[in-house]
Amino acid sequence: MSRIMDEIEECVPALRRYARALTHDPDRADDLVQDCLERAIRKRGLWRPSGSVRSWMFRILLNVYRNDLRKARRSPAPVSLEGLPGRDPAGLDVQPGRLALAETAQAMQALPAEQREVLLLVAVEEMSYAEAAAVLAIPAGTLMSRLARARATLRSLTDNGAPKLRSVK
């Protein structure tokens, strides 16, 4: 099989991670990844090795995600912390006692989409600023200011003073 198919296949776990983090909905995330894979595979003849396959795949995934948001005028469903400790509705493993994670999960959903997209590419996908900017098709300066705003917003939502959550006996 062609090399590009191997490279596409290698991207799948990271694409799933990014889609899950964007949507907090396992089924919808996998739907987006499937859509992304179908498009990429259909159009792989058009791909030119000027960038990495990974950047290209993430760009497609973001397009699919944004189209989906527009189509359904969806915004991420708010995560309730009432079910904690346990498994939160995002399908993410939130262990008892790991409230910091639950709190962060909730805060991430409150972030504006463009800040969330940037922060996840840099912090979780560990892309260079240049690659993240290319994926998002924005200038480096815009990337930096979105990243800074995302981190500031996330911090204000997670740790201002007294903990919002207390463990329940």
Binding site: V12, A14, R16, L92, L101, M108, L120
Partner: peptide, 20 residues
Amino acid sequence: TLRALYGPVAAEPVPHRLNA
């Protein structure tokens, strides 16, 4: 914290339908 939260998703087995 973000990597701890989302990282495990990439270690999950990839569902059949996402096999490239």
